[in-house]
Amino acid sequence: MTTADLRAPEKPTVLRRGPSRLRRRESAAAWVLITPFVVLFLLFLVVPIVYSGYLSLFREQLVGGNTFVGLENYTRALTDPSFLSGVARMALFLLIQVPVMLGLSLVFALLLDAGVLYLQKVVRLGIFIPYAVPSVIAALMWGYLYGPDFGPFAQLADKLGTSAPPFLSADWMLFSLMNIVSWEFIGYNMIILYAALRSVPRELFDAAAVDGAGTVRTAWSIKIPAIRPAILLTVIFSVIGSFQLFNEPSILRNLAPNVIGIDYTPNLYAYNLAFINRDSNYAAAIAFILGIVIMVVSYTVQLSAQRKERAAR
């Protein structure tokens, strides 16, 4: 006992020194390897965010200088009808557009996966291609298509002796935007879902077939539950994307300047606050609140999905 006691501490220290040197070398290498990431992360993400947060606590006037105002910009934002209506508009956008878009993505992915389509690869590529078009170009293109006097819809309607729907009017604009965004991203989401479907073990389908399940039943009861995490991923990306809508309305604004106001979406509003109103402090506050809104909504979506999953188990 005593000898062992005396000897025991010796050995472990020797033993401990070995791996710890290795571990130290490993961790040094790890630090070196992640340094570029950490530097860029700090420089281009953390610092600007912290600085924006700092900015949002001040008010700089055109005359009268810069003053610390605490959370005044935030309280102002929460009672600002321009900001609130923008958020509400994006919430509506999200509630309608995201289900439609993801529904279509899912249907296409299932069809492709089931192999019931002719020209599989052409169809797959065709649906995906709009995603390769930059959103600015897409918005320009759709702006032309929507044109009330010169667009193809207008010309077709003219030939038929009627008039085309007023795509760029106040009542239609949000739906016209939804259409553009859906067109852009159905393919992208389809690819995510399709890839997830491809990785579902094939034995499950065989088992289902043996049990007498048809294609639809297999899709509903096996495939969709199996790719639930992928679906959740696309939902969260879409939620974030919706609230950050900027390019499409910003471009269509050139065609319908009185329909898409400076506050049509929260992002557009923040941009105009900074560059037209020259109120960058308030713009920073708006950006922060928008970020918080996005976080809350994303988290809610994730949480409710997880809860459902647990309940399903």
Binding site: F44, L45, P48, I49, Y51, S52, L55, M101, Y131, S135, V181, E184, F185, Y188, N189, F237, S238, I240, G241, S242, Q244, F246, N247, N267, A270, Y271, A274, S280, A283, A284, A287
Partner: peptide, 22 residues
């Protein structure tokens, strides 16, 4: 809507943020 676009949009916001900061 997508990863890249989200990123692209974030990047736009970020650039704006940096400009604002400047």
């Amino acid at each position: 809507m997508t990863r890249t676009t989200t990123w692209r949009r974030k990047a736009t916001g970020l650039t704006a943020g940096i400009a604002v900061a400047a």
